[in-house]
Design a protein around this nucleic acid. Structure first.
Lengths: 115, 115
DNA sequence: GTGATAGTTAACCATGTGGTTAAATATAAT
DNA sequence: ATTATATTTAACCACATGGTTAACTATCAC
């Protein structure tokens, strides 16, 4: 049972599963930011933010460019595009399953209905 | 404290971050399956599969319809559509950042450059 | 009834996660 | 050289995760 986030898609979805990390990505979507700027609005310590940045880096979603004692964080889009593609690839099937959902809801009925 | 009120997205992305769960979803995309049928191709115990199914259920991605001593699992698409929408919403920005990636790669040089 | 079948729950284990504070590192400013 | 600033690393904590085996529940078949 080694690093089960070694698969790129695993790492990408894992990175997206945390609201702090999604917020970081949302802010970086508007342009690169320094670590300190990135951390400022969050109510958590700098090391906590640093850990989130490491998760994002390991998922290939973030590049850090060191410039003096400052680190400029840049969003990298490619892995997220892969994630979107995975979802899109199955969307046709899911949409085919929407009728199955209706059937399921009808067959089980409201929670308190006598069986 | 920032509230991103995005707990469902957390659950959806977390569910997608595991290759076993993605494989389960991929198979369910072709139509409902019983738990046993679902578990058969995986090299892990039934309780392990059962746990994955519970994660998927809690993420709202799976419905289980009990019929006799058998449970029919049906994929529910809606949360996945929300996840895709989250990604799609930021795609325009990421694509704007592709040039920033090029700039980053040029400015930092090859990976093994001496520090 | 007895037994087989489908599946979950319980208890456990090793490791991962998300957070903390304190110390370390590196660079800039004086 | 000293000090302040930006950021990471280390050590720690409580809890979650992904897996196991064993025991339990529920249903079907005889």
């Amino acid at each position: 049972m080694v690093n089960y986030h070694s698969v790129p898609l695993d790492a990408t979805f894992h990175a997206l599963a945390d609201p702090t990390r999604r917020a970081i990505l949302m802010r970086l979507a508007k342009g690169p930011l320094l670590v300190g700027e990135l951390a400022q609005p969050f109510d958590m310590s700098l090391p906590a933010v640093s850990k989130h940045l490491r998760v994002l880096s390991q998922a290939g979603l973030l590049a850090q460019e060191k410039s003096g004692r400052v680190r400029r964080c840049t969003l990298l889009a490619a892995p997220m595009r892969d994630a979107a593609q995975w979802i899109r690839h199955y969307r046709q099937f899911w949409e085919g399953q929407l009728d199955a959902l209706d059937h399921f809801l009808r067959s089980t009925g409201p929670p308190m209905e006598p069986k």
